[in-house]
Design a protein around this nucleic acid. Structure first.
Length: 642
RNA sequence: GCUGGCGUAGCUCAAUCGGCAGAGCAGCGGUUUUGUAAACCGCAGGUUGGAGGUUCGAUUCCUCUCGCCAGCUCCA
């Protein structure tokens, strides 16, 4: 039979030879080939070839190769655990993007000391270089086999598998695990393994189930790559917005105020104000009308909107006042709907776009609160568009353009887009869903945006597009969302008068670009490591004197910078210049402007950029130009394309 | 909410196997007038998250509670 290697040689191979042998016969075998893709399926190198096919060798540089690598690593870790703690039962152990974990049913949590021992044992298992073999069992045989080994979770898993299909089992030495595979040829194929941490995790992710002991770890071909990964974890810690937010005095969350409730300190508030001003200006440019709504409303409003039925457990409890009940708002939509309702609307009025930086309060379970990323009171950059069905695609395209513009302005350039379709439980007729879903899809296609489909992932009231941004450390965050809503227009009986003189139901689109300002700010802090671009920096320049002689000069320069609209501060303290520089560096101020007698005489400033760059001497006018250019470079104005 | 860990000065962290709680930085007062990431001297700063219990004595041990952290689950 003929075997051809993708982008490589091809030749005649005897039927029944393994993938690995075939590759070496074709002269491209090497240690770094981990598995192979045969006709689209990832398989072990030990898999026999039965028909002519194309083989693609998988190495660590492919995501599929890495997955096999991490998957085998988690088996090695599991083997180490079983050797050291035979009472531990196996459950599941998948590969993650850069790491892996395995969940064990064990009587107690693993300690850091256990982890060290397990890691040592894992390294030893790698050294043993055990061959990893694949076997197929019938369902009943597999159940009997794992029952006999006391692996009750494995038995439960197998019982859930469809009848008639073979069950695959992988063996390395004495260690046997139920696994779909594929795996590396030997345990020695793993270069370096490092266990990271332990945590509790529910069996099958359900909090009603017993809690298992999860161990996280990672592995790479070389120790150096493991170290680089650990360094990256350190960098993530260094940039943690909770740490940086405190160091730069941006925000605080205090016990006395309440968990999940954020205080914006002057510098954090300065950045927020810049974000908000930018947001408002650009929305007005893009044809939105900005509105405001109160933080509470009669409970009846939330009954009409349906929030009380399906969102109550996430709402603060209501409060009684003058014989009626009021509810702290968990969403902005009903208010915008009521503004729409306040007039009879014509088809000529549509689309109507209401935008609001609307602060909402949601009851989040204590365990899920996390710095700025998950809070109980937050401000959504919310907007609701009311449009005719024929305007939907155009409006969604417009929102997409606007979203990418805003995200790019804040320094995000890599995105992942998801289109989520009708879930099992949903409201609205088929024709609505089809129309809306195809409008979303057409909008994405019209902008040449590649996207992943998330079938059944939509809200019960309509399909949606979610946009995830990738930050400087390659982590994904979901901020933006565009959701079509058939439910609220029905519930509130929204209408507009069409050309035909009859009432029609408008379509409502919910959308947020940043999601919540709190979370977005947290992401920004980590993205920039606190070193905001000049247009967002709470303080753009610190002007500092060398001795008291330059005091008046500094004061005058600061006044000039401020008059030109820049956020400048004077540092006139009786301290050495090195100390002042250090403080400004720690505060991540973009520009440090130093004046001694020399500069004062020449009417110049010695300009130092953040992180040490020496930009030389400049006149005050030149400094103004420099700051202006810096700001313009990063902040842009939206140009609607419609 | 669940499992585990942790709460000591404004911040970062020591110490107490149950016996007077201690440093650096920050703050305040002086000295110093300084050239690109930390000048020097001094002063002050604490019901050791909160409540209860055991004890001659608790910050340390126990119980409860609040909060934080790592995850699970959920989510903007």
């Amino acid at each position: 039979m003929k075997i051809s290697v993708k982008d490589g040689p091809s030749g005649d191979i005897q039927t029944g030879e393994t993938v690995g042998d075939a590759l070496s016969e074709l002269g491209i075998a090497s240690q770094d080939i981990l598995a192979a893709k045969v006709e689209g399926a990832v398989v072990d190198l030990s898999r026999p070839l039965s028909a002519s096919s194309t083989v693609e060798p998988l190495r660590f540089d492919s995501s599929e190769g890495r997955e096999v690598y991490r998957h085998s690593s988690t088996h090695i870790m599991a083997q180490a655990v079983k050797e050291l703690f035979p009472a531990a039962q196996l459950t599941i152990g998948p590969a993650l993007e850069d790491s892996f974990y395995y969940d064990f049913a064990f009587e107690r949590p693993f300690t850091p000391e256990d982890l060290e021992r397990i890691e040592e044992r894992a390294a030893e298992i790698i050294k043993r270089n055990l061959t990893i073999t694949r076997q197929e069992f019938s369902k009943q045989d597999a159940i009997d086999f794992f029952k006999a080994r006391g692996e009750h979770y494995k038995v439960e898993l197998i019982q859930g598998f469809p009848d008639g299909e073979p069950i695959t089992v992988y063996t390395q030495g004495d260690f046997v695990d139920l696994c779909r595979g594929p795996h590396l040829p030997t345990t020695g194929s793993v270069g370096a393994i490092k266990l990271l941490n332990t945590a509790g995790a529910y069996w099958r992710g359900d909090e009603r189930n017993p809690m298992l002991q999860r161990i996280y770890g990672t592995s790479f071909p070389t120790r150096a790559e493991v170290d680089a990964y650990l360094a990256r974890l350190e960098e993530i810690k260094r940039r943690d917005h909770r740490k940086v937010g405190k160091e730069l005095d941006l925000i605080s969350i205090q016990d006395e105020i309440g968990p999940g409730l954020v205080l914006w300190h002057p510098k954090g508030a300065a950045v927020r104000l810049l974000i908000e001003n930018f947001w408002r200006e650009q929305h007005i440019r893009d044809g939105y009308q900005l509105v405001y709504s109160p933080h509470t409303a009669r409970l009846d409003l939330w009954k009409t909107s349906g929030h009380l039925d399906y969102y109550r457990e996430n709402m603060f409890p209501s409060m009684k006042l003058e014989g009626s009940e009021y509810q702290l708002k968990p969403m902005n939509c009903p208010y915008h709907i009521m503004i729409y309702q306040s007039h009879l609307r014509s088809y000529r009025d549509l689309p109507i776009r209401y935008g609001e930086l609307g602060t909402v309060y949601r009851y989040e379970r204590t365990g899920v609160l996390h710095g700025l990323m998950r809070v109980r009171g937050f401000t959504q950059d919310d907007a609701h568009l009311f449009c005719r069905p024929d305007q939907m695609e155009q409006e969604v395209s417009r929102v997409l353009d606007f979203t990418f513009f805003v995200l790019r302005t804040f320094g995000f350039h890599q995105f992942e887009v998801f289109l989520s379709t009708r879930p099992k439980e949903s409201v609205g007729g088929d024709e609505h869903w089809t129309l809306a879903t195809s409008a979303l899809e057409a909008a994405l296609k019209s902008r040449n945006i590649s996207f992943h489909l998330d079938p059944g992932g939509g809200a019960f009231y309509g399909p949606k597009i979610d946009i995830k941004i990738k930050d400087a450390l390659g982590r994904s965050w979901q901020c933006s969302t565009v959701q079509v809503d058939f439910n609220n227009p029905e519930r509130f009986e929204l209408s507009y008068i069409g050309e035909d003189g009859k009432a029609h139901r408008p379509i409502m689109i919910h959308r947020a670009l940043m999601g919540s300002i709190e979370r977005f700010f947290g992401i920004l802090i980590e993205h920039y490591g606190g070193a905001f671009p000049t247009w967002l920096a709470p303080v753009q320049a610190v002007v500092m004197n060398i001795t008291d002689h330059q005091r008046d000069y500094i004061v005058a320069v600061v006044a000039q910078l401020r008059a030109a609209g820049f956020r400048a501060e004077a540092d006139l303290r009786n301290e050495k210049i090195g100390f002042k520089i250090r403080e400004a560096e720690k505060a991540k101020v973009p520009f440090m402007l130093v004046a001694g007698n020399r500069e004062m005489q020449d009417g110049t400033l010695s300009v130092r950029g953040r992180s040490g760059s020496n930009l030389g001497s400049m006149t005050v006018a030149e400094v103004l130009g420099l700051l202006g250019t810096e700001v313009k470079h990063t902040q842009r104005e939206f140009q609607p394309t419609h």
